[in-house]
Computed example of a mutant assay.
Amino acid sequence: MTPVARAAAVLATAVIGLAGVPTQATADGTYAPLNHPQPVTQADTREVVEFFWYGCSHSQALEKPLEDWAAKQPKDVVLRRIPAVWSSAPDQDVERAHARLYYTLERLGQVDRLQLSVFQAVRDQGLDLTTEGAAAQWAEQHQVDRGQFTAAYESPQVAQEVEQAPQEMARYEVNEIPAAIVQGANQTTPSRTGSAEQMVTVVDQLVSQLPAQSEKHQVPMKSGLPPK
């Protein structure tokens, strides 16, 4: 190993170590460490951040397997979604509109129920949900109060989240969607795993290598007595 290669290896190990993720999982090339690891949003959690776009077939292919996986995880494993908005991209207006729809549903607590339905509407049915009227009508047809939807859609909080989306992509070094980042340190994508569905296997492996956060707060049992 050359001095340059050795230095690179040491740096890579240090970067991954910041997030407490073992380095050996990169051996098969199914994920890559971020150059600048990011803190998790909630303390004492194992976090998976998913970047997606409603207009992306690979994002749609990932969604159901990832949802099924997340539903089986303990409480300390958190799935956080961020809609993809590429700065200066030809489809940026569509991406922003889809991001606005997502953040509106998130504010109303409807993402878990309707995320797959939005993909089906956009990808399978070819619906244009890029205007407030079309999005509100679709939401109303899916048992979302139209007044509440409109209020959230037009809220400054949702507008701010849409504006921050491109910055989030840059912060997590996302160059491909869908992308999943585990514990703010390691990113996997379809080009690395071979398919969107296979990403879930890699995510599961990375999460399983992290210490369960609930274990940090358990009081050891003594003399057969329950912890106080």
Rank of each mutant, 00 (worst) to 15 (best):
T2I: 11
V4K: 15
R6E: 13
A7W: 09
V10A: 15
L11E: 15
T13G: 15
G17Y: 04
A19T: 10
T23E: 13
A27R: 12
G29T: 05
Y31L: 15
Y31G: 13
P37R: 00
P39W: 04
A43K: 04
T45Q: 05
R46S: 04
R46T: 08
V49E: 00
W53N: 04
H58F: 12
H58W: 09
S59T: 11
S59E: 08
Q60C: 04
L62N: 01
L62V: 08
E63F: 02
E67R: 09
E67N: 10
E67L: 14
A70W: 02
A70R: 01
P74S: 13
P74D: 14
K75S: 15
R80S: 12
R81S: 06
V85G: 05
W86D: 14
W86V: 15
S88N: 14
S88H: 11
A89K: 07
A89S: 15
Q92F: 09
R96L: 11
H98L: 11
L101C: 10
Y102A: 05
L105P: 01
L108A: 05
G109Q: 06
G109H: 06
L114N: 01
Q115M: 04
L116F: 04
S117Y: 03
S117D: 14
V118Q: 01
V122R: 01
V122G: 07
R123H: 14
R123P: 04
Q125T: 10
G126C: 13
G126Y: 07
G126I: 12
L129H: 00
L129K: 01
A135V: 13
A135L: 11
A136D: 06
W138S: 08
V144A: 03
D145V: 08
G147C: 09
G147L: 08
Q148Y: 01
Y153T: 04
Y153Q: 07
S155W: 13
P156D: 14
V158H: 07
E161R: 12
E161W: 05
V162K: 09
E163M: 11
P166K: 02
Q167L: 13
E168R: 03
M169D: 02
M169Y: 01
A170L: 10
A170W: 00
P178T: 12
A179E: 01
G184H: 05
A185C: 13
A185H: 02
T193E: 04
S195I: 09
A196I: 07
A196Y: 00
Q198W: 05
M199Q: 03
V202F: 00
D204G: 15
V207P: 02
V207A: 02
L210A: 13
P211W: 03
A212W: 01
S214A: 15
S214E: 12
E215K: 12
E215A: 15
K216Q: 10
Q218A: 09
M221T: 14
S223R: 03
P226E: 00
P226F: 00
P227F: 08
P227W: 04
